[in-house]
């Protein structure tokens, strides 16, 4: 592990800048830093997760020109390059879950990939998990480094850090910094234990199998009864990725636009004929919960939730996924 005093962060800032943009945590979103001081953000949970950088709320895919019966088009790829500094483990893990959808399988999503490949994740341990956090439920915690390229911890007034991936190690190698001191590492271990234990872990053992048997349960009525059917939970969720593709038309030209979409919207599955396979909120809720806690595990052996608690906070009516998981767990299964 390396160390750099927080008062001398400009020593790493320049190196980070050489990669491109340096995004830092601001209250509402990750924003590019203009000064090294901005690396010292104390925001523990950015409202809009770093997913916004890899999967922006809108992005053009193609632009086209029409000339009579003829059409020509060009790919438009919005790139991103740089380092996200201070991304917490939950968001880094969430990005690894997005990778499963966008980078695996037959068609790699080159739009996502172009940004993902060129943005390094400089993670920081989360020192202030809040009352909504339940990350440890999913087999990792506020000090888990494995989803980042470089991982650091602020211990008192020093940043300790190390390269995790090859790319991360390369960056660290070229920095003019000294090794961490023994007492700092000792303190880090103590912090890790104390802070990790502070996170309230849920017991969701067997939830994937339980859900598989609950397709026709009455629980979906109950769960969805106060839901308004807006898209807030999904938009702020760091692992939700569903999107829509629509064309925007101007006289003789236009572009194909990808925007976020939400499985909580009626229109998401409404067909041209008027038929809707998920006609009521309860079916949409079932799908959302199943997707995260049954379908994702079936497809990728990973839950599609990282326990960041954003959905709990942004929900207009405070629907709490933790309560729902417990309700699912406690629901008796009818024979």
């Amino acid at each position: 592990m390396k160390r750099v005093p927080l008062s001398e962060l400009e020593r790493i800032y320049e190196a980070l800048k050489s990669y491109g943009s340096v995004w830092v945590r601001k209250k509402n979103a990750y924003e590019t830093a203009e000064t090294p001081e901005e690396l010292l953000s104390t925001v523990s949970k950015v409202k809009k997760p770093a997913k916004f950088i890899f999967l922006p709320e809108e992005e053009p895919l193609l632009a086209f020109v029409q000339d009579g019966k003829n059409v020509t088009f060009q790919e438009v790829i919005r790139e991103a390059k740089g380092v996200i500094f201070g991304i917490p483990p939950c968001e880094a893990k969430a990005i690894s879950l997005l990778d499963l959808n966008f980078l695996q399988g037959e068609g790699e999503d080159i739009y996502y990939k172009k940004r993902r490949e060129n943005v390094l994740l400089f993670g920081l341990a989360c020192l202030a998990p809040d009352s909504r956090c339940f990350c440890t439920t999913f087999g990792y915690g506020p000090f888990t480094e494995s989803f980042t390229d470089i991982f650091g911890v602020v211990v008192d007034d020093v940043l300790l850090f190390e390269g995790i991936t090859e790319k991360g190690k390369d960056l660290v190698k070229n920095l003019d910094v000294e090794d961490a001191k023994g007492e700092e590492l000792k303190k880090l271990e103590a912090m890790k234990k104390e802070i990790t234990e502070r996170v309230k872990k849920l017991d969701i053992q067997g939830i994937q199998e339980k859900l598989a048997r609950m397709m026709d349960s009455e629980i979906w009525d109950k769960i969805s009864s106060s839901c308004l059917g807006c898209g807030a939970c999904t938009y702020y969720c760091p692992t939700c990725y569903c999107f829509d593709i629509q064309d925007v038309e101007r006289p003789n030209w236009g572009y194909r636009l990808r925007t976020w979409d939400s499985c909580m919207f009626t229109l998401y599955t409404l067909e041209g004929s008027g038929h809707n396979p998920r006609p009521e909120l309860k079916y949409r809720w079932r799908n959302r919960l199943m997707h995260k806690f049954n379908y994702y595990p079936v497809l990728y052996q990973e839950f599609g939730c990282v326990g960041c608690g954003r959905c709990i906070e942004v929900c207009p009516v405070n629907i709490d996924i933790r309560e729902i998981l417990m309700e699912v767990k406690n629901e008796p299964i009818r024979a």
Binding site: F243, L270, Y295
Partner: peptide
């Protein structure tokens, strides 16, 4: 089967039936 589709390659989410995508 028919379902509302967008990406056609199992990424945009909407045409799933259980863990399977109708498009893919």
């Amino acid at each position: 089967l028919e379902r509302r589709m967008k990406c056609g390659i199992g990424k945009c989410g909407r045409c799933n039936i259980g863990p399977y995508y109708v498009c893919k």
